[in-house]
């Protein structure tokens, strides 16, 4: 990827970060918390995938590297999800 491609990614990341703050400034967190929660977390996931795919070049690495990263992510999510569910 050349510098133009990296720049496009940067602009998108910048806008998405701003959008997350705007969700709060607009009062959505107070008025519709779980909708705001979902929106903000989805934006974070999209940003993270963008950084991993383009800045860390996962798109161009063998899939095994992606599976390695997903392995750690799934382990962390399993711990978080099951532990939180256990006390609901």
């Amino acid at each position: 990827m050349d510098w133009k491609g990296y720049t496009v990614i940067y602009v998108v990341l910048f806008v998405f970060a701003t959008a997350q703050a705007v969700v709060e400034f607009a009062g959505l967190v107070d008025s519709a918390y779980w909708a705001a929660f979902a929106l903000i977390m989805v934006l974070s996931v999209v940003k993270a995938v963008g950084v991993a795919a383009y800045y860390q070049h996962l798109r161009w690495e063998p899939r095994a590297v992606t599976y390695l990263v997903l392995g750690g992510t799934v382990a962390a999510l399993a711990l978080t999800g099951a532990a939180a569910y256990s006390i609901l």
Binding site: G72, T73, A76, T80
Partner: peptide
Amino acid sequence: MWTFLASDIVLFGAFIGSYAF
């Protein structure tokens, strides 16, 4: 480096998971 980062994902995941818990 990637292997180390996979481990670091779990480290931070456990910190964030602790916060969530």
